[in-house]
Simulated scan of single mutants.
Amino acid sequence: MKDIQFTRHRRLRASAGMRSLVRETHLHKEDFIYPIFVIDGENIKNEIASMPGVFQLSMDNLLTEVDEVTSLGIKSVILFGVPYEHDKDEEGTGAFSHNGLVQVATRLIKEKYPELIVVADTCLCEYTSHGHCGVVEGGKILNDASLNLLAKTAISQAEAGADIIAPSNMMDGFVAAIRAGLDEAGFEDVPIMSYAVKYASSYYGPFRDAANGAPQFGDRKTYQMDPANRMEAFREAESDIDEGADFLIVKPALSYQDIIRDVKNYTTLPVVAYNVSGEYSMVKAAAVNGWVDEKSIVLEMLTGMKRAGADLIITYFAKDAARYLDDIK
Rank of each mutant, 00 (worst) to 15 (best):
S194D: 03
V22Q: 07
A151Y: 03
A14I: 14
E111H: 09
F174Y: 15
L12Y: 15
K198H: 12
E91Y: 15
T64Q: 10
L79K: 02
G205S: 12
P35I: 06
S281H: 12
N289P: 09
R179S: 07
G290R: 13
L299F: 08
S202V: 10
E137N: 13
Q56G: 02
A237G: 09
I297K: 00
N46L: 11
I4D: 08
K152L: 09
G134L: 01
G173F: 09
I314C: 00
F187I: 10
G139H: 09
A233G: 04
F32E: 00
I141M: 08
N99R: 14
R23A: 14
D242I: 15
S58P: 07
I74L: 07
R235G: 11
R10A: 12
M171Q: 08
S15E: 01
A228Q: 14
Q5L: 15
I328W: 07
E126H: 15
G131E: 05
L57Q: 00
Y256W: 14
P114Y: 04
S146Y: 03
G53N: 06
A233K: 00
D219A: 10
M301Y: 09
L254R: 15
V66A: 01
G205Y: 03
L269V: 13
S168G: 04
E47F: 11
T268W: 15
E188M: 12
M51R: 04
G205C: 09
I260F: 09
E126I: 13
Y223S: 07
T122S: 13
A210N: 03
D311Y: 12
H98N: 15
E111T: 11
S129R: 12
G309I: 02
L116Q: 08
N61H: 10
V135P: 02
K140S: 13
H26Q: 14
R235T: 12
V119Q: 05
N99D: 15
L27H: 01
F207T: 02
G92D: 05
K284C: 08
N289M: 13
N43K: 10
Y204T: 08
H9G: 15
I155W: 05
G161E: 05
P114M: 03
V77Y: 04
A286Q: 13
A180E: 14
D262T: 08
T70Q: 09
H86S: 10
D240G: 07
G213R: 06
N265I: 04
E91G: 05
E137T: 14
I249L: 13
A318Y: 00
E279C: 04
I36Y: 01
T303E: 01
Y113I: 06
L62P: 01
P270W: 06
L101N: 01
V190I: 13
I259Q: 06
A177H: 00
P167M: 05
E159W: 12
F217V: 07
I328H: 04
I260R: 09
V119Y: 09
